[in-house]
Design a protein around this nucleic acid. Structure first.
Length: 483
DNA sequence: CGACTTTGACCAGCGC
DNA sequence: GCGCTGGTCAAAGTCG
């Protein structure tokens, strides 16, 4: 049976069979091979072996040189290949089966066979390497596409939710919750062709990967003030510009936090009801960037810094800024999606909803529609566990701060990770994803923030004279231009 | 000298 | 229409 197989496929094996098949055949060639009763007759095997050594035979038959010292063969192969592989290891096993018990002696013909065998094995090894490389490439591509698809689905879901919100609650908002164009105008253009989309084909944001860019675009809106046409070229002809804002409350003694962007202060006002002045900042990383933010101390607690972001960056962001923008975008996306998926009534939109409180290690988020603009607030100062769990909190230092750690309260220690783990971990992310697909967005941002974000001083924001430098807002550093 | 901050003035939206 | 308020402008001052 095996003999028949070998005889029939002497040449096909290299093009079809994998190493395992390759070796399996070799194993079947020899009477010493541990096998079933089918191989009980050694003589038949030997006959088959020699017959396979005909001029038309391939390496498989060469492989069957039983008299060759196996250690020697393996040594040669390792030398030639230079990188012993699983294949080689398997060959050793095969060689063991080809022990001298076959009773054949060394000969010149066998030496030739050995050389042929080595050559063949090298070719096979190279082929397998290439195949492995291709498979890796395919896997990478599949993974990439999968991630993009996940993001696409989440964002499409959000898009649908926003449409529903507009229909059901438009009277409450008096305007679209997000950009009148639809928050994913750019996203659609980017994601739609994603199956064939190659990284690097994108234009305009060469420094950001598609996911990051999508995230940024997902919730980023222009500041929307009709009073500053200088910075409103993108929406100057659009519908009334009242956009979603993302506000972050974080506890910090520092006046500002690093958020990866450069800011320039262009105004300050004493807002009604708050003796603390409100500062207005504009992104200066690119001419005409419409992103702006407001910074103000909380009236009730001067240690709490409130930063509100609005606008959409029109330029590539530095990694740290991308991370933070993504975080903000993720927050907005998650919140909007959650508020939509959980209910379509006004209550979900008009009240503060602790969406994030239901997730591990996610700050309290609220959505206020009473303000002129729908504002999503991420409260890094509250204790989510107090609302949902009696378990103790464990402060976590969030990256991105300029020597002024921001204390993030989060829930109980992760059962697998202990108490001193980063705010976001793979495990917690997985759990969160299971409960909310949109958490994928936050996952990407959070992981990036932990892995890639510079701790402490950020070159961009360390300049104390720089608008960005002075923005050591705790937590808010996560959100530049993400609104 | 350029970039940034400060600060008073201006403008538009909104409520009464 | 008026006043209040939020937001922005822009000249002057400051800083490195």
């Amino acid at each position: 049976m095996e003999n028949h197989h070998q005889m029939q496929q002497p040449n096909r094996e290299f093009t079809i069979l994998r190493s395992t098949d390759f070796l399996r055949q070799n194993l079947n060639l020899y009477p010493t091979t541990v096998n079933t009763g089918e191989h009980a007759d050694p003589s038949i095997k030997e006959v088959d072996f020699f017959s396979s050594r005909s001029p038309t035979k391939n390496s498989d038959t060469d492989n069957s040189s039983p008299e060759e010292p196996h250690d020697h063969r393996h040594t040669n192969m390792a030398k030639d290949d230079g990188s012993p592989t699983l294949f080689n290891d398997q060959l050793v096993n095969t060689a063991l089966n080809l022990s001298p018990s076959a009773g054949l002696s060394r000969s010149a013909a066998n030496d030739e066979n050995i050389e042929t065998l080595l050559t063949t094995l090298q070719r096979e090894s190279l082929r397998l390497k290439e195949e492995n490389c291709k498979l890796r490439t395919m896997l990478d591509q599949i993974t990439k596409n999968y991630n993009q698809l996940q993001l696409f689905i989440a964002l499409q879901k959000q898009k649908q939710c926003q449409k529903m919100e507009t229909n059901l609650n438009g009277m409450m908002f008096g305007q679209h919750l997000l950009d009148p164009r639809g928050p994913f105008t750019k996203l659609d253009a980017q994601v739609a062709p994603f199956p064939d989309d190659k990284s690097g084909q994108r234009q305009g944001h060469p420094e950001t990967d598609p996911v990051e860019d999508v995230l940024e675009q997902s919730t980023s809106q222009s500041w929307g003030s009709s009073k500053s046409p200088k910075f409103e070229e993108s929406n100057s002809s659009e519908l009334p510009l009242k956009k979603t804002r993302v506000s972050v409350r974080a506890r910090s003694e520092a006046p500002l936090i690093s958020d990866g962007c450069q800011w320039r202060k262009y105004g300050q006002k004493i807002a009604k009801g708050n003796p603390c002045p409100r500062a207005y900042y504009r992104c200066t990383m690119a001419v005409g960037c419409p992103v702006r933010k407001q910074v103000q101390r909380c009236m009730d607690d001067k240690t709490v810094l409130i930063t509100t972001y609005e606008g959409n960056h029109n330029h590539p962001l530095p990694p740290s800024a991308i991370v933070m923008a993504n975080s903000t975008s993720a927050a907005a996306s998650m919140f909007l999606s959650s508020s939509c998926s959980t209910s379509n009534n006004n209550e979900a939109l008009s009240n503060t909803v602790g969406v994030f409180s239901s997730m591990p290690y996610i700050p309290m988020a609220t959505l206020s529609t009473s303000a002129p603009f729908p504002t999503i607030t991420l409260d890094m100062t509250t204790n989510p566990s107090a609302l949902t769990s009696p378990l103790p909190l464990h402060a976590t230092t969030f990256p991105q701060l300029l020597g002024h750690p921001v204390i993030f309260p989060h829930k109980m220690p992760h059962p697998l990770l202990g108490q001193q783990q980063p705010l976001f971990t793979t495990e917690t992310m997985s759990a969160a994803i299971a409960s909310n697909p949109n958490f994928t967005i936050a996952l990407a941002a959070a992981i990036s923030s932990i892995i890639g974000a510079p701790r402490g001083n950020d070159g961009i924001n360390n300049n104390s004279s720089n608008g960005g430098s002075d923005l050591p807002l705790n937590g808010t550093s996560m959100l530049p231009g993400s609104t």
